[in-house]
Design a protein around this nucleic acid. Structure first.
Length: 490
RNA sequence: GGCGGUAUCGUCUAGGGGACUAGGACACAGCCCUCUCAAGGCUGGAACACGGGUUCGAAUCCCGUUACCGCUACCA
């Protein structure tokens, strides 16, 4: 679409994210919010939040809270006050009546039950039900009569002849013949607004310049454009982004595992990794770049890179992405994120970690490269915090098979380390390699049993780093304890 | 059913007429590195849905078919 410049907006853009508070913040919603947020940041616009709570049956305060929490965790902060759609029903009502007054809409006295019956009958005959304006729109006399009798009525929009089209920022031109659009209800007979009416009324009031939302709204768009025009308002730009599917190609749902962003937060994901991953699910910078920080994402984001095709959510790649960000994040920042988790695991208090900040960061440096989730960091941090380790049975059978020779080697290892002048990796390695040479065994024959003695496990960071961060006293004590344990076992 | 949307490795994608024997990433397999595990490096298998056009030439443009998705409510 050469004639549309989607590269940058002419006026200060105002975009919005408009979730219904009927559940938790879904990854699909989070991504829509992200794209809107990115767009606002990129072009120095406003990112507004509107809670579409007009469905009183399904909307809950708990959901509203969960959506706020999710957005806050992700760092997708919004401008201005949150708009609650339910607070604007008076305006929606007034706008619907304005349309009635101008002749763009009409009263429909048909009881909902009758409409339903007609629909069912048509279906029973195997026909496609078509709404018949001729049956719904009454003459002025009939209308006046029913009005006088106080009969309830809904207000329907009178869809004009012709066709409705727009240049979607992701799909380019989309057109609908108006004959395929029924005269839709904009105000129910109980006086409450229907979705399309509320959305358009609110978007106009909020000064929204670009409506970026899921492509499940494509068929609502012509109705909304018609409403803008009938209301005499400027039609905003539209960008319909694709859906996110589960691994079976179906719309993402609970069956596909975690779909709420809160679940990922609790699984040990970094918000920037979640955002980076989500950004790439429906958008591409145009080259092979994948791992990006938020500033990079803002700099590179463009609606031109938005995709048309639904993407499948791959948790494996999300984890990989998190691993990349774990390696990228400034260590102090990581310490801030992990410290509360360490405390929750009962290993140390946040205050304690602050007091030993340098040491703590050193431990994190050791673990971050090996972990994909912050939870894994916490699990692997255990040996650095506890007083005595528990021996993993598998580790014992694998590395301590022969208790006699193992205890012998560990005892020698203990003495060699204890004789060191300085407690630092280079000296440790030199001493232990020399010991191995003297005994005519490989280094691994010393390092592996030692690893079990220090951590209780078969896997850990480099053994000299473990010795360094566990510290001289505790290391020697643990090795001694292992020797006793093995001698007792003999 | 009607209308609309979409269609490149298993998955995320690059590609916008010749640079494509189709590139990268995740996952998978092997190798290297190595005290274990990761990380990292290297290698490998793996895709243009199908059929017609347009063109000297199509993954790229057009049409159709198929498949999938969405909408079709006095839900949002």
């Amino acid at each position: 679409m050469a004639h549309m410049s989607s590269a940058s907006p002419a006026t200060r853009p105002r975009v919005r994210f408009a979730p219904s508070p009927t559940g938790f913040l879904h990854v699909g919603g989070a991504r829509t919010a992200l794209y809107n947020w990115l767009y606002a940041k990129k072009y120095d616009g406003d990112f507004l939040l509107r809670v579409e709570d007009t469905d009183r049956q399904r909307s809950t305060d708990e959901s509203t809270r969960a959506i706020f929490d999710g957005l806050e965790w992700l760092g997708l902060s919004w401008d201005e006050d949150v708009v609650y759609q339910g607070a604007n029903v008076a305006r929606h009502y007034a706008d619907a009546h304005r349309l009635l007054g101008s002749g763009a809409a009409y009263r429909d006295f048909t009881p909902p039950a009758e409409m339903e019956q007609r629909r069912a009958e048509a279906e029973a005959r195997g026909e496609t039900f078509r709404f018949d304006r001729g049956l719904a729109e009454l003459s002025p006399e009939e209308t006046a009569e029913k009005l006088a009798r106080g009969e309830p009525y809904a207000i329907r929009f009178k869809v004009p002849e012709g066709h409705t089209e727009w240049y979607d920022l992701v799909h380019e031109r989309i057109a609908f013949p108006n004959k395929d659009i029924e005269d839709f209800v904009i105000l129910r007979s109980d006086g409450t607004p229907v979705y399309n009416m509320a959305v358009v009324s609110d978007d106009i009031a909020m000064g929204i310049t670009l409506v970026m939302r899921g492509d499940d709204h494509i068929s609502n768009t012509p109705k909304q454009i018609l409403l803008y025009r009938a209301l005499g308002a400027e039609v905003p730009e539209f960008a319909h982004v694709p859906m996110i599917h589960g691994t079976d190609g179906k719309k993402l749902s609970k069956r596909h595992g975690a779909t709420a962003v809160g679940d990922y937060q609790h699984q040990g994901l970094l918000p920037q990794a979640m955002l980076n991953f989500l950004a790439l699910l429906g958008w591409s910078p145009g080259d092979d770049t994948e791992v990006m920080t938020m500033p990079e994402l803002i700099a590179r984001f463009s609606v031109d890179g938005l995709h048309k095709k639904a993407a499948v959510f791959d948790p494996k790649k999300l984890e990989w992405m998190n691993g990349q960000h774990l390696a990228l994040i400034p260590i102090d920042e990581l310490a801030t994120v992990v410290a509360p988790l360490i405390e929750r695991a009962g290993l140390a208090t946040v205050a304690d970690l602050e007091a030993r900040h340098t040491w703590f960061c050193g431990v994190l440096e050791l673990l971050r490269i090996r972990a994909r989730l912050t939870d894994e960091i916490v699990a692997q941090a255990r040996p650095f915090f506890v007083d005595a380790v528990e021996y993993d049975p598998d580790a014992v059978t694998k590395q301590w098979r022969d208790a006699g020779t193992t205890s012998d080697i560990l005892a020698a290892t203990h003495d060699r380390l204890a004789s060191l002048d300085v407690w630092e990796p280079a000296a440790m390695e030199e001493g232990l390699r020399k010991l191995a040479e003297e005994r005519g065994i490989s280094g691994g024959k010393i390092f592996q049993p030692l690893r079990v003695a220090l951590t209780g496990l078969t896997v850990s960071p480099g053994i000299f780093d473990v010795l360094l961060y566990v510290g001289r006293e505790r290391s020697l004590a643990r090795i001694g304890a292992a020797v006793s344990y093995l001698r007792q076992a003999v």
